[in-house]
Amino acid sequence: MKSDSSVSSGRPPLFRRLAAVLALLVLSPVCAEYLIGYDSIIGRPWELVSGLLFLAPLYGTVAVLIREVARRTGRGWPSILLLSAAFGLFQAGLIDQSLFNPHFISDPSWSQERLPTLVPAAGISVHHLMNFVVGHVIWSFAAPIVVIESCVPRLADRPWLGRVGITVLLVLYALAVVVFFHEHTRNFMASATQLGATAAVATALAAAAFALPRRPAAFSGRVPPPWLVGGGAVGVMTTHQLAPAGWSGSVLDVTVLSLGGCLLLFWSRRRDWDRRHALMVGGAALVVNTALSFVVEPLGGHTSLTAKYAVNATLMAAVIALLTWAYRRLLHTGARTTTATLPEQSVLAIGGDRES
C-alpha cells in the first residue's frame, strides 16, 4: 500500500506537479520569444538556452501564476485571457515600455510597423498594441498553459503549487521586472500619463477577470470536430501575424480576432467541447509561429541562414512532438473531460498544499 501523503490526502504527487510547473516555465518564454524566430540570436543555440534563465522568470512565472489563480478560484478561460491581457499590457507598457518607445529596436522595421497607425496624442501605435498585447495573451501565456495542461490532463484542473512555490515565483518575477525595467528605461521613460493610463487599464482587465462568474453554465449543442476548430484557429492566428502594418490591416486583425474569439466562447460553453478542442486551439498558436519562422528575417540581418533554419526546424520538430504527445495523453486519460469548470474537490483540496 502506498504511504505517500499526497496520495492519502487526495493531492497529486509533488514531483508531477513540479514537472508541470517547470515545463510551463520553459514553454512560455519559448513560445513568446523563440518560435517566431525574429531575434538575432535565433542562430545561436547556446544563447537561446542561456536566455531562458532571464526570460523564464519574466514570462514563465506569470503563466504559472495566472494558471494557479484561475484554478484556485474556480475560474475558466475567459478569466485566464483577461489576466493574460493585463500582464501583457503591464509588460509592454510599464516594464520594457516597447508600447511607447519609438526607438525600442534600432532596426528600420520598427518605425515601418509603428508609424502607419501611430496615434500621436497617446504615443501608441495601434498595430504595435495589437501585436504586443495579443501576442502575450496567446503565445506568452494562454497557449503554453493549455498545451502543458493537456500533457498532464489528470492535473489540469488542480493547483500545482503551494504557498512556498507561489512565493518563490513571485520573488523571481519581481527580480525579473527590476532587471528588465532597468535595462529598457536607461535611455527612455514613458510619460506619467502613459504609465498611469496603462496601469489603470491593466488593473481594470485584472478586476474584470475576477468579476466573471466562477462557473458558467454549459449548454447542450454540437460543436465542430477538434481538427476543424484547430484549422480555424490556424487561419485566425496566421491572419493576425501577417496583417499589414496599416489601418486596414489593424481593422482586419481586430475583426478576425473578434469573430474567432466569439466563436470560441460560444462553442466552449457547450457540453460537447472537450480538452481536445482546447489543445487544437493552443497547438495552432505554436504551429503558426514555427511555420512562419522559416520566412521571418531575424533583426540585424547578420544571422547565418544555415544556423537559423536548423534552429527553426528543430523547434518545429519539438512542437510537433510535444503536441502529438499531449494529444495522446488526452486520448489515454479521457479527452472528454470538460475544460469549462473546476471540480469541487480541487477547490476543497487547496488549503493544505504547502510542500511546494
Rank of each mutant, 00 (worst) to 15 (best):
P224I: 05
H277D: 02
V251Q: 09
R270C: 11
A284S: 14
L279H: 03
A245K: 01
L252P: 05
T238A: 13
S248F: 04
G282K: 09
G246S: 15
S268D: 01
A243C: 00
V287T: 11
P244H: 11
L252Y: 10
P224C: 04
R269T: 11
L265P: 00
S258M: 13
G260E: 03
S250R: 02
P244C: 02
L228R: 15
A217Y: 02
T238S: 14
D274T: 10
M280P: 00
P244Y: 01
C262F: 13
L286W: 04
V223E: 05
L279C: 02
R276W: 06
R276V: 10
W227A: 11
C262E: 08
L279A: 01
R222V: 00
G282Q: 10
A245H: 05
M237S: 01
M237Q: 11
L286K: 10
R222K: 08
W247I: 05
S268H: 08
G235A: 13
P224S: 07
R222A: 12
W247N: 08
V229C: 07
T255P: 04
D274Y: 12
H277C: 12
L279V: 00
G261Q: 06
L286Q: 14
P226M: 13
W273L: 03
L279P: 00
S220C: 01
L265V: 07
W273Q: 06
V236Q: 08
G232E: 06
S258G: 12
H240I: 01
